[in-house]
C-alpha cells in the first residue's frame, strides 16, 4: 500500500505543455478517480505515475519514495489497460504468471498464487485457454488477475470498462468497488465517464486542459462544485447555468432542484415555459423547458406533463448556485452571495 505524490509535474509533447506544474496527492488506500473530457491530460497523468511516459520535469513519489527515474516494472505498480493488453500468444495462466516469473517468484508459490487469483476472478476453468477464445468480460478479468497477482501497492486503471457492454459495465463497476474494499490498496482509475467516477470514487479528481478543477468526494463535488466547469461536467443532465443580463449575474441549479407544476408556485425564481422535449426514463422524467430566461433541463419524478404543454417552474433559494465572472462558484456564506440572492429575489420571469 502506498500513497502517490506528484510534485510540480510538467509534461511536454512536441514543445506543447499538456500538463504544467501540477501538484497532486493521492491518498493511501483510497479509490481515486481521475475524470475529465478527452484530451484533459488524465491518461497522461496516469502514464506518468506508471512510468510509461515519464514526466518532462517534476517528481513522482510512490509511498514516499522518489520513483521519477525508476523503471515501470520496479515501481510496485500494476496497471489495467483500456484494451486489456493481454499477451495474445500466451495462455491465461502464462498471462497471469508472467510478472511473477520476471520477479523470480518460486514455482510452488507461483502456482498457488495463480490458482487463488483465478478463483477470485472466476477464471479457474479457463487457465489453459488462449485469450482469443475468451469473451470481452473474461479478458477484462485476465487483465485484472494479472494486475492483482503481483500484489502491487498501487493499482492503475485506464478506462478499463469502456470496451464492455452497458450491462456488464455496471456489473464490473460493483465488482471493482468490492475488490477495492477487499484489497484495501490504492486505486487510481481514469475515466471520461462521470457516472463511473461518481459511483466508484472515494475521491474524484476532475481535470480540464491539464489543470485540476476540483478534488473532492463525489457528494461534495456534486453539491458544491468549485466552478462552472465542474458543475456542468458532473451530473446528468448537467447543471443549468444562466446569465441574467439585466442583473449581470450568473446562476445555476441542478435539474432535479426545480419544481414544476400547472399552477404558479413559491420560489426565489419563478417562471413558466413550454415543454420542448420529454425523456421518460422510468423512475424519473427529464423535460426540456423553454422559458423567457433560458432553456432548462428539469428532472422530475412526475411524468404527467406532455410536450407543448406550458408549465410553471420555480426554484427554492437554497438550491441556487451563483458564479463570479471567473466562473468560480460564490460560497454561500459570503456577502456577495447575499447580494446576488437579493438581486434575484421575488421576481417573476416571463
Amino acid at each position: 500500500m502506498a500513497s502517490i505524490e506528484l510534485k510540480n509535474i510538467t509534461k511536454t509533447f512536441e514543445k506543447h505543455d499538456v500538463i504544467k506544474d501540477l501538484n497532486l496527492t493521492i491518498e493511501d488506500g483510497k479509490f481515486t478517480v481521475l475524470v475529465g473530457p478527452s484530451g484533459c491530460g488524465k491518461t497522461t497523468l496516469l502514464r506518468m505515475i506508471a512510468g510509461l511516459d515519464p514526466q518532462t520535469s517534476g517528481q513522482v513519489l510512490v509511498g514516499g519514495k522518489d520513483v521519477s527515474k525508476t523503471a515501470p516494472g520496479q515501481r510496485g505498480i500494476a496497471m489495467v489497460f483500456q484494451n486489456y493488453a493481454i499477451y495474445p500468444t500466451m495462455s491465461v495462466r502464462e498471462n497471469i504468471e508472467f510478472g511473477l516469473k520476471n520477479n523470480k517468484v518460486p514455482k510452488a508459490e507461483r502456482i498457488e498464487l495463480v490458482e487463488s487469483i483465478s478463483e477470485t476472478v472466476g477464471l479457474k476453468d479457463y487457465l489453459d485457454r488462449k485469450p482469443s477464445t475468451l469473451s470481452g468480460g473474461q479478458r477484462q478479468r485476465v487483465a485484472l488477475a494479472r494486475a492483482m497477482v503481483k500484489k502491487p501497492s498501487v493499482f492503475l486503471m485506464d478506462e478499463p470498462l469502456s470496451n464492455l457492454d452497458a450491462k456488464l459495465r455496471v456489473q464490473m463497476r460493483i465488482e471493482l468497488i468490492e475488490l477495492h474494499k477487499k484489497l484495501g490498496t490504492t486505486f487510481v482509475y481514469v475515466t471520461h465517464d462521470q457516472v463511473e467516477a461518481m459511483s466508484m470514487a472515494d475521491k474524484i479528481v476532475l481535470m480540464n486542459k491539464g489543470v485540476i478543477q476540483q478534488e473532492a468526494p463525489p457528494e461534495v463535488m456534486y453539491h458544491t462544485p468549485s466552478n462552472q466547469f465542474t458543475a456542468q461536467f458532473i451530473g446528468v443532465p448537467p447543471m443549468n447555468i444562466t446569465y441574467v443580463r439585466e442583473k449581470q449575474l450568473t446562476f445555476g441549479f441542478r435539474p432535479e432542484s426545480a419544481a414544476i407544476g400547472r399552477s404558479p408556485q413559491q420560489g426565489l425564481v419563478q417562471t413558466s415555459g413550454e415543454i420542448i422535449t420529454r425523456e421518460m426514463l422510468g423512475s424519473e422524467t427529464i423535460y426540456q423547458i423553454k422559458t423567457p430566461l433560458d432553456t432548462f433541463m428539469i428532472k422530475s419524478i412526475d411524468d404527467q406533463y406532455r410536450v407543448n404543454e406550458t408549465v410553471y417552474v420555480s426554484l427554492p433559494e437554497e438550491k441556487i448556485h451563483f458564479f463570479d465572472d471567473q466562473e468560480k462558484r460564490i460560497a454561500q456564506d459570503s456577502s456577495l452571495y447575499l447580494d446576488k440572492i437579493q438581486a434575484l429575489r421575488g421576481q417573476y420571469y416571463g
Binding site: 506508471a50 510509461l52 523503471a71 515501470p72 516494472g73 520496479q74 505498480i77 500494476a78 496497471m79 489497460f81 483500456q82 484494451n83 493488453a85 493481454i86 499477451y87 495474445p88 508472467f98 510478472g99 520476471n102 520477479n103 494479472r146 503481483k150
Partner: peptide
C-alpha cells in the same frame, strides 16, 4: 504489434 502489450510487459518487469 500493439504498443500497449510492450507497456504491459514493462510493468511486468520483463527484461
Amino acid at each position: 504489434v500493439s504498443p500497449s502489450i510492450y507497456e504491459a510487459a514493462s510493468l511486468d518487469n520483463a527484461s
